[in-house]
Amino acid sequence: MINLLIFVVVVLVIIVVVRVVRVMELATELSGEDDSIINRKDNRFNGAMMIIFLVLGVGAMVYFTLDAKKYLLPLSASKHGVIIDKLLDVNWVLLVVVFLVTQFLLFYYAFRYHHRKESKAYFYPINHTLEVVWTIIPTIVLGGMIVYGLNVWNNITKPAPKGAMLIEIYGKQFDWTVRYAGADNILGKSNFRLITDDNPLGVDSTDKASKDDIIAKELHLPVGAKILLKLHSRDVIHSAYLPHFRTQMNCVPGMTTEFFFEPTITTRQMREYTKNDKFDYVLLCNKICGVAHYTMKMNVVAEEPEQFNKWVTGQSLVFPKPAAPAPAPEKATASITKP
């Protein structure tokens, strides 16, 4: 019933709009002016609107920008993120200046030079000097931006230092699993054909390196450590996105991708900084991966190395040792590479 009503209302609105347009037309016809020609009133009205839109628009944008600060990501919790944020700030300063100047000129000229019967446009088809100037200036500025940007990029993507702590991030529909390399800091080989319910990452049990590998459903990061993420997926493309660490890399089935970073701020410090005791870091999936894509996440904890070591030794091994033989340590004995 309600739907029918809505439908009727929509139809009525359309009819009303059409009728109003028609009435407006008839009214102008009666007043004897030719409505199809753009007249003085139209030019003045739209010219004035340009200025109104410019002033109110920029005002609203500034207000919104200041207000929206509270939604933005807090300061970067990783070392490379700080230089990314700085690059972003430099970009913003430049872009906002260009934005304001060009938009101002566009709207101001549209207002200032709206049609007047008595005036005539200035015939000015070309000025080679101007063209050259405004080709060269953006080229120089962009050249600087390219060099700066690529410098940052090369810094971030340069090969990870030897001995960086390896963590595998493994995506599947619709959850994440992490694997720590253990004391040997080598991740055991894996193969998608070996995947079973007990071995969700398909780790090869015959590979010695896999013996001390640790599996977890929460990502813990020791601050100050150099961490090399190795990313995998078993089904479709996922993207491991750690927004607070300015870190993202796709997980592609059939490929291993990697991302190197150094976390710097613990969860507790970030809670103090954001004045929010419930703050948590998060690992999100940022590549459409299926119906429950929006639920695919993992809790992330950044902590001091001591706490991390305590936590990681409490996690289970990929291949838990059978309980029978002797009092061999069941739990992991990993420790992280000291920073």
């Binding site: 030019n43 010219g47 049609h115 000015y124 101007l130 080709t135």
Partner: peptide, 30 residues
């Protein structure tokens, strides 16, 4: 990155040309 940011140059030229066209024009606001 290099090739992508280069696109900004011809784009900027186009914008400047549009703005220069509006300068001292006699705009019929259709």
């Amino acid at each position: 990155v290099f090739t992508t940011l280069l696109v900004a140059i011809p784009s900027a030229v186009k914008v400047f040309n549009y703005i220069a066209t509006l300068w001292k024009a006699n705009i019929v606001m259709s």
